[in-house]
Design a protein around this nucleic acid. Structure first.
Lengths: 432, 432
DNA sequence: CTGAAAGCGCTTACAG
DNA sequence: CTGAAAGCGCTTACAG
């Protein structure tokens, strides 16, 4: 079956719709449309255009008011057929009024200009014809697309969906539509996406992929598109940001470990060209330094991305170089899960041989083995707050705080034990 | 700081831009824009409009070719200020040619109509002015929005993001932009979303929330919007669907358990008004019936949604009514995780007291305790295949198979053990 | 090869 | 309270 809904791109469609279903050989003959599709479209059309003369389609369209004065019919034969959507003109014709009246009658803000019975008449016709305003035409005229864009690195990474979800919720409330794109952390893809979204006319952008001093920022500022950075800190005075206090999060993790007697603590960091990786590493180092007098000795190794695989590799390298560590602070939960997988694969017990702390507290981190002690990032809040700022920017309202730093919270679970407990069990890992 | 980029909705903006930064008291005075924003916009503007006379903005805009003949300047004072975006007319003016030539020069498909030096000139100007075609204007004219919509129940549910991700990837390839919406399984929200997306002019829709015989289908068919159902089966001849073979999946699970000696097997099902819940339950029953001669005795209890919480509640009810079961086949991984949480909370060992099988194999299901034996749904494939069908529909190509059923695959892990093993350990759960 | 014009479907200032 | 007209920024058939 052919499900195409644009079957007549090159078919003599204007002719087709002149004839009734009974007398339409040319149409069916063109074979560009299945009988089923034809009947479907035809019926819809007949219902929608009930008040129209069923003559030449082009001519009918042509009877629009402009047509009244111009005698020449422009032929637009190669224009892709509109999905024969009901327009404001159709409604106007049905109601026997001018389209401007229809527009007013259907717009709550202009409705007061119209008599009640007129509103009623217009609404009835609109409902009857199944009229739906063309948002693009409206946007073109009003210069407001009621559209926002969200750019993330990868929706497949479980930190992002809650952010996007929260944003969509907030904007749906005010009738905006949310378009999303994934960059996979490729600057090129990000640039292309920003370009495409601006072309698309987004009224604002929420970006979760800005690197430090990202060139994408200049593009948005120049195009005069409100942007807010979420999750990552673009370190730009031009862009408000909403993020978690990464350094503080690492401090919580390090203190938690130090209180339990850990001294040889390692960090498995993420990429340092993004603020999350960078600030977490710095936070880790600073926290360790502050505890140096207690004998805390930090070490670090880095993944090239915040992924489980990188976590595994990094963990392997870490243990090769620093066999004496008792605890790991991972740059995020993905890396932490990678650690756990590696440790498990080597028969190294967590937390009894090595304790692990993650960050973000993604879904299911309480269900994994061992239940992961991690620092929670309120991802939905991140999205909500970013949305609120963006809404203000779009509406031209001042924003009180353009540098929002959410508080991290330590979730104590089972992947950390005290050094004492480690020593009383088979603390040492199997020799390599 | 005020980050607004539309500060002058009511400010005398056209006047503002007549003056240089030095002599602009009225503008700054209006206090609708911070100095910083003003300077930013002003600089951008000066750079972009370098070739324009810096006189009255409205007048400058008015010098468009239509203006040449009409003496009266229409005032559009209350129109929200365009983000003073460079238009095709600006480029034309810069290049000293007609805009139609610019349009052709910038469109790869029409470029052959234009002389090479003309193309060069146009491209130079476009680049210099930072021209970006207005996708909405283009869409309005061509009747193609290069936009598709994706509707899911909840991006926060980890099954959906990979689907959306795959769809976005496929459509980004052909320059389409993807808009997403969440319904939370509320028919009302779904209807509103479909309505809004159609208004927005989507060329197609991928819907993961169709119930059986969903009324939303008629809306799309009537509006002549290509739709493909993903994940769920709308049971409609009008809509192609791409889904997993739910019944087969349950069969795999039941057989896996039966082979390991389980006879009292329970199903924790999802909502029965959606095909996933419905077909999985039916598949479970059929598989059990086929093994009735081996003594397999099914039982079932249902959650009201595919959530962890519902899994917990359902598991509690199940054990209250059927204390003798040895294994549970959950309707999906969320329900399975709910089971595991409940069992853990009651000190009931999985798999040694009760074995559990999930479905979908979401991220981290191999990491939870115990590693979940589950039936994998290739979610990314679901998205990819749905996208391919939708692309064909949009392009008016015939589609070979409009009822795609992907094969499930059993992932054997640690949440199932044999009844023998169960009996040799502390099989019986603590009495309630 | 390039220009001039029309029109996609709306909204809104201006008349009446 | 309603109508007539203009224009948002494009694309494209038609002339030349």
């Amino acid at each position: 079956m052919n499900f195409s809904t644009r079957p007549s791109l090159s078919a003599p469609r204007s002719h087709a719709f002149c004839c009734t279903a009974m007398q339409c050989p040319a149409f069916v003959y063109s074979k560009l449309m299945s009988m089923h599709t034809f009947v479907k479209i035809f019926c819809t059309r007949v219902r929608h255009r009930a008040t129209w003369p069923l003559c030449n389609d082009r001519l009918v369209r042509g009877t629009r008011d402009a047509m009244a004065k111009k005698t020449k019919t422009t032929s637009n034969a190669t224009l892709p057929e509109r999905a024969n959507r009901t327009t404001i003109v159709d409604v106007a014709r049905c109601a026997g009024v001018h389209w401007s009246t229809v527009s007013r009658g259907l717009n709550p803000e202009k409705r007061h200009l119209i008599s009640p019975e007129m509103i009623e008449r217009v609404e009835t016709c609109a409902k009857q014809l199944g009229y739906r305003a063309n948002a693009m035409a409206s946007a073109l005229r009003t210069q407001r697309s009621r559209t926002v864009g969200v750019i993330v690195s990868n929706l497949g990474d479980p930190v992002h969906p809650p952010i996007v979800r929260a944003i969509e919720d907030r904007f749906a409330e005010i009738g905006y539509v949310t378009i999303v794109g994934n960059t996979d952390n490729h600057p090129g893809r990000q640039a292309a996406l920003i370009e495409r979204f601006i072309q698309q006319g987004v009224e604002g952008l929420i970006v979760a992929t800005f690197e430090r001093n990202d060139p994408g920022i200049a593009v948005c500022v120049e195009a005069n598109i409100p942007v807010v950075a979420v999750f990552r800190d673009p370190e730009s005075e031009f862009v408000p940001s909403v993020r978690i206090d990464d350094a503080k999060a690492m401090e919580l993790a390090v203190h938690h470990l130090a209180e339990r007697g850990h001294r040889k603590i390692a960090h498995i960091g993420g990429p340092q060209n993004v603020s999350t990786g960078y600030h977490r590493y710095r936070g880790f180092r600073r926290a360790c330094k502050a505890l140096a007098n207690q004998g805390v000795e930090p070490s670090a190794v880095f993944g090239e991305a915040f992924t489980v695989e990188e976590g595994q590799f990094a963990c392997e390298r870490l243990l090769a170089d620093h066999n004496d560590i008792t605890a790991i602070v991972a740059g995020n939960d993905m890396l932490a899960v990678g650690c756990l997988r590696f440790l498990r694969s080597k028969g190294i017990d967590c937390p009894n041989a090595i304790s692990v702390v993650g960050m973000n507290d993604m879904l299911f981190m309480e269900d994994i083995a061992p239940a992961l002690t991690t620092v929670r990032t309120p991802t939905a809040d991140l999205g909500t707050q970013a949305s609120c700022i963006l809404v203000s920017m779009i509406q031209g309202l001042p924003i009180s705080n353009d540098r929002i730093l959410l508080k991290p919270e330590l979730m104590v679970r089972d992947s950390v034990t005290s050094v004492d407990a480690q020593q009383s069990t088979k603390r040492r890992r199997p020799a390599k």
